[in-house]
Design a protein around this nucleic acid. Sequence first.
DNA 1: ATATTACATTTTGTCGATATTTTATATTAT
DNA 2: ATAATATAAAATATCGACAAAATGTAATAT
Lengths: 231, 231
Amino acid sequence: MPPLSDTDQTLGNPPKTLTDQAYGKLRDDIIRGEFQPGSKLRIELLKQRYGMGATPLREALSRLTQNGFVTTEGQRGFRVSVTSLDDLEDITDMRVVLETLALKKSFEVGDDEWEARVIASFHQLSKIETATEPDLERWEERNRAYHLALISACHSKWLRRFYETLYDQHKRYRNLARIDRSVPRDVHAEHSAICDAALERNITKACQENENHIRRTAEVVAKMLKPKKIS
Amino acid sequence: MPPLSDTDQTLGNPPKTLTDQAYGKLRDDIIRGEFQPGSKLRIELLKQRYGMGATPLREALSRLTQNGFVTTEGQRGFRVSVTSLDDLEDITDMRVVLETLALKKSFEVGDDEWEARVIASFHQLSKIETATEPDLERWEERNRAYHLALISACHSKWLRRFYETLYDQHKRYRNLARIDRSVPRDVHAEHSAICDAALERNITKACQENENHIRRTAEVVAKMLKPKKIS
DNA sequence: ATATTACATTTTGTCGATATTTTATATTAT
DNA sequence: ATAATATAAAATATCGACAAAATGTAATAT
């Protein structure tokens, strides 16, 4: 598995430069919902928060503009990208299209090693999902790892790149909506169904299960996002 | 037509900040092939070339890393992304997928205004293509405008964003290969066929013609790129 | 000759300071 | 009171300088 982007922030690739660190932390904080959508990202504030100069921060923010997490206009500094139902729908639809395509490609050429990666990552995810005390932090990591493992045999660098962007965007919406636990839903079963289909090499089924999985999540998020008219 | 990205460099949107200028010029020069793939982008050199300080240049380069035009590793500065046949193939395939999808979406909801945009941009492109003295500069502009007009009714912001990246990447390969005029090919006829299909609202035909159009270009580029073993 | 080490040079990444622009506030006029 | 204008404050974008790291070169050892 070759590194995807230049800003590969995975294990074994510790950020060497301050800019890399800033990029990772900022992106993480935005995805986590630490910064409200649309809010200004004042440099002076970020300097304090992350304990570094303006330059690495501005460079990191510049990067983030290109994957849609941050916007910048004229001489008016940086802002966290706004969210909207339309955008969520767009992201969801595109993610379905690209992940489906990536799954197909992955299935076509996936060898034993790929299967092993799928099983292994599914197992790790299961451990968390069936545990009594859920570790949300670790779940996020492993959920991501599982989805990436499924498409890890897909050769297309660009497809994987676009997919990662959409996954992260989608994740931000999930976090912002602070997922509704009241909606009865067995996420583990959904993950399991995809894994089964993968090992059976049943492309159609896997894609269908995967699409349902994504859309169900999006639906819950959309429900939480809709009632802007709280009071 | 809302602006696509924050770094929308189209007419009426003059770059307000030095960083924007740097971004535009750098991207243009890379796409044009002024910088060889894989070559180092030394800041000192760029400072001279573009007549500005290091900060806006570094910020522009940071942006460019996210759409795959520039790479950066550790403390070793910036480089123009390398090219390869695999990458060209990848870009081509993905562009076919995304442009086809965008065309379908555009056809579905395209109204009279959309048709007008298509006709108008096709007309402008035709003027260049049928002229005796071809203005390559202007042709590039209008070719881009035509392809964007075709998908301009597609609502998906993300699809259009990804598409633009791929279009520009593809364009770089075209320029690097210094297109082979000896291969007999009537590009104008291809553009014309797509336009006809669009106005007939024949989705299938339009997508087919469009795919052929892209793949034919890619094939010529690939042929020029292959013989690395010159002597 | 090849490999290793030490040194000098270049280049990169980062900070603090500054000019410019935008935003907020107060003042005056309609 | 609202609108328009002038002024003050804040924030942004940019530069020049410096420390750290990488690269290239020369000297020494195997």
